[in-house]
Design a protein around this nucleic acid. Sequence first.
DNA 1: TTGTAAGCGTTATCAT
DNA 2: ATGATAACGCTTACAA
Lengths: 348, 348
Amino acid sequence: MPTIKEIAKTCKVSVATVSNVINHKGNVSKETRERILQIINELEYTPNLVAKNLKTRNTRSIGVLAEDMTVFAIPDIIDGITERCEKDDYQILLVNMRLYKKFADSYYQNNDYKKIVHKELKKLQSKQVEGIIYIAAHERLINVIPDDIKIPTAVAYGFTDKKEIPSIVVDDMNATIQLIGHLIENGHRKIGVIAGKKDSLHTLARLEGYQRALFEGNILYDLSLICYGDWDRQSGYKYTDIMLEKGVTAIFCMNDFIAGGACDRLDELGIKVGKDIAVVGYDNREMASYEKPPLTTMGLPLHDIGYCAGDVIIHMLEKKENPSENGIYYINCIPYYRESVNKIEIDV
Amino acid sequence: MPTIKEIAKTCKVSVATVSNVINHKGNVSKETRERILQIINELEYTPNLVAKNLKTRNTRSIGVLAEDMTVFAIPDIIDGITERCEKDDYQILLVNMRLYKKFADSYYQNNDYKKIVHKELKKLQSKQVEGIIYIAAHERLINVIPDDIKIPTAVAYGFTDKKEIPSIVVDDMNATIQLIGHLIENGHRKIGVIAGKKDSLHTLARLEGYQRALFEGNILYDLSLICYGDWDRQSGYKYTDIMLEKGVTAIFCMNDFIAGGACDRLDELGIKVGKDIAVVGYDNREMASYEKPPLTTMGLPLHDIGYCAGDVIIHMLEKKENPSENGIYYINCIPYYRESVNKIEIDV
DNA sequence: TTGTAAGCGTTATCAT
DNA sequence: ATGATAACGCTTACAA
């Protein structure tokens, strides 16, 4: 690999002139510029960015620390970050911690978790990234990031407890208001819930949205219509019987897997989803559109979360300020209305 | 951010001594080492890797160029690369070209495609990566990589036409032999095929496996039992009728979506999959296990492809040789036997 | 055991 | 318009 020095020598000019040509500074005659460009092409010279970065003391790169890339939400978030960064020519330095693979789904309770994050954060700073985006595998409080971190940092798909580290999250509450509102508009007034895990922030926010939607619809909130499951198909299957006992006309499942399980059970019982009963899911996973009937569900704004996270970091980098009041950005979901919701004619 | 110079000054030693401590060279008395370590800790000194890399002229990093991270195969491949690289402490520099997003699924026929790849390849070399792994979104001939590329390069999930650039691909043929063999063992002798696109390398290899399996099972190869579709659910739905007309007892669908569509149609017609007829898919997509009945399918070894690609590159880097004969590594698939295949009792 | 100094490949300042 | 040179933060002979 030739260096700038060799180009200079071959062209019989100084390195300064070559550098000027490469960086499109003026102060170079047309002839020398063209000669230099030609030689650069011939020798296939590639500037050494490592040297350049050292000299200029910036890398124009953003570190992205992902808990586990194989979790469904993360690639789309990274894609959004990439799109935003491309616009301003920032580079991404992606680190995939493989936490699920290493510690299964309780990784954030593992002792080594904090150590790994700190090590990777340190490494990223060693590499002179200018900002950092931490991507969680599901929304929860992310408090592993040191308070005194030296460079702008944001958390995507997770909350932080300080506004200096902004967080970009799903607007679960409003999305749920919309989804339940849709059921109410279709005449449903007795709406059961098969929730996710009780302590999940997603569960909490969606439950709040559920309550508010009922309130707006003048429907009494009935605690007994809520079951807590484990985000899986089996939970949906199991709790459907309880829903039926309570006599609900619609089931709000907090993800598409739960909804799929509910449909399985209803199908077994000969109850037609989208005709005899309404079922809605959440997340808009790939399988949601393949269920029979296709599920009405709420699409997660993963790409937009990434895009916003990139935007926030670039803002912090360039304006040296955090544009949000409280450091939390709620991103809108996209509803998918499909055939799993029936209309109930209201008798007057 | 303090530099090594400031640490040296604070400790009243030379930078050389600090450097020796950081890099665990000997030649330092216990006292000075501990003093230095303490100061490093206090001042939260982080070595500047950019400077280090410039000086040592290596970055211990591998560039990974992904066609589009949001395509289902790619995250797992990256995960495999990550796992392999972690073992030898190589860093990954990931570039997500977002080709699907930019040009839809005909991106590799687009004029800009080659330009983008060359630009990114150049950038990666600018950043002084020591090797490059190109990840294709689906298997095909990848001939955008310049012949005279200066650093070790491999292609994951795609073929190359020169063995200096090894490729790591799915062993589609043998996987299909195994899958069709499973049908034959279960007594099926009239096995229809709903294939993918006619010119896809996946289609070709799986078709060859199909032929060989029939040959081994002494079954005549009947061209009329093969339909070519478009990898989607609709193709499966549509061509199922033709399969039925031909009187097949089993349908080999070249991916799980096609299989899902076939199941839809069979269900409509009141034909029970896994009882009246056998259906197998391919890829082991998430939805395969949610079909009714769950699909027998062939799992793609995506993680292993990534792992192998990492392995190959690291070999090239360290042994300066390419360990394969012909530059192609075929990776084994993992079969998933589920309830969509019935046994046919053979009358003697 | 510790220090001095050259040099990695650039950019940028200041002369010429 | 062009060149000489210092400096970025580090490693590494080699000297002390």
